[in-house]
C-alpha cells in the first residue's frame, strides 16, 4: 500500500488556477521529489496534503485512509525554518512532542538523542538567532522528524542556503535518512538536488501545475560527490532539461 496517494487534485484560488488534476504516489521508504518552476503550486500541494487547504477536487489518501483536509497526520517542513525565536533550540524541537502530550522532561530526553545526528550538539540552549542558516534548517528538520517520522513533507528545506552549505546538507540528509525509516516527499526547483536525493522525480508544469513527467532515478546508493559528475547523473539531467 502507498504511504501517500494523491489522486486528481485540483485547486483554484479565485480565478487563479493553481493545481490541475495532480496525481502523485509515495511508497514506503521512498524519497520522492516534486520539481517545478517557482509559483507553479508546489507549496499549495503540500498545504493540501498536510490538510491545511481543501482541494476543489480530488483526494488525499494516507496509508489508504482519506485524509483530505485533515491535519496532524504527516509532518511538514516549510520553506522558512519557522523556529520560534523565543524558545531555545531544545525547546523548539520539543514543541511537537509537548503538543502531543509528553511531559517536558520526557520530550527533552527523546529529542536529545538526536542532537548529535542532526549536528546540533552543544547548541541545545542557544536561541535560533544565534545559529547559522544551515543549523536552523537542521533544527527545523529535527522538529519535523520528531512530530511524525514515518511520512515527511519537506518544502525546499535548503532553498535559502548558499551552494556550499546546501551541498553539505544534501549529503547529510542522505546519510541521516539511510538509517531512519521515513518516507519523504520533497520539493525543489534545483534539478541537481532532485536527482542527487531522489528515488523518483515528478516534474511539474507552469501554473496551472500538473505532472508533466515522471522519472525513476536508478542511480545506486550510497551516493556521494562523484555521483554528481557521473554519466548516469548527466543523462538524467539531460532528460529533465529537455522538458523546459
Amino acid at each position: 500500500m502507498n504511504k501517500i496517494e494523491i489522486s486528481n487534485v485540483t485547486k483554484k484560488f479565485g480565478s487563479l488556477h493553481t493545481l490541475d488534476n495532480v496525481c502523485i504516489d509515495l511508497e514506503q521508504n521512498q524519497f520522492v521529489t516534486i520539481l517545478g518552476p517557482s509559483g507553479s503550486g508546489k507549496s499549495t500541494l503540500f498545504n493540501i496534503i498536510a490538510g491545511l487547504l481543501k482541494p476543489d477536487e480530488g483526494r488525499v489518501l494516507i496509508e489508504g485512509e482519506d485524509y483530505t483536509s485533515k491535519t496532524g497526520r504527516v509532518s511538514y517542513m516549510h520553506q522558512k525554518d519557522l523556529l520560534l525565536p523565543w524558545k531555545n533550540i531544545l525547546e523548539n524541537v520539543c514543541v511537537p512532542l509537548v503538543l502531543k502530550g509528553s511531559s517536558k522532561v520526557e520530550a527533552e530526553k527523546k529529542a536529545l538523542e538526536y542532537f548529535k545526528l542532526f549536528g546540533l550538539a552543544g547548541f541545545e540552549k542557544s536561541y535560533p538567532n544565534q545559529l547559522s542558516g544551515g543549523m536552523r534548517q537542521r533544527a527545523a528538520l529535527l522538529r519535523t522528524y520528531l512530530f511524525s517520522n514515518d511520512i515527511m513533507l519537506l518544502d525546499e528545506p535548503f532553498g535559502g542556503l548558499d551552494a556550499m552549505t546546501k551541498q553539505k546538507m544534501q549529503q547529510w540528509v542522505l546519510e541521516v535518512f539511510k538509517n531512519l525509516k521515513s518516507s519523504i516527499l520533497f520539493i525543489t526547483h534545483d534539478i541537481d538536488e532532485a536527482i542527487f536525493l531522489s528515488d523518483k522525480i515528478y516534474v511539474f508544469s507552469e501554473r496551472p501545475a500538473s505532472v508533466k513527467a515522471e522519472f525513476e532515478v536508478n542511480i545506486p546508493r550510497p551516493r556521494d560527490n562523484d555521483t554528481l559528475t557521473s554519466t548516469q547523473f548527466n543523462e538524467m539531467k539531460k532528460k529533465i532539461l529537455k522538458l523546459f
Binding site: 498545504n47 498536510a50 490538510g51 491545511l52 491535519t71 496532524g72 511538514y76 516549510h78 522558512k80 519557522l82 520560534l84 514543541v95 511537537p96 503538543l99 502531543k100 512530530f147
Partner: peptide, 14 residues
C-alpha cells in the same frame, strides 16, 4: 504573527 507559523503549530495539533 506570520500565518505560516500559526498554520505550522496548528498542524502539529495545537
Amino acid at each position: 504573527v506570520e500565518t505560516e507559523l500559526l498554520n505550522l503549530i496548528k498542524s502539529m495539533g495545537a
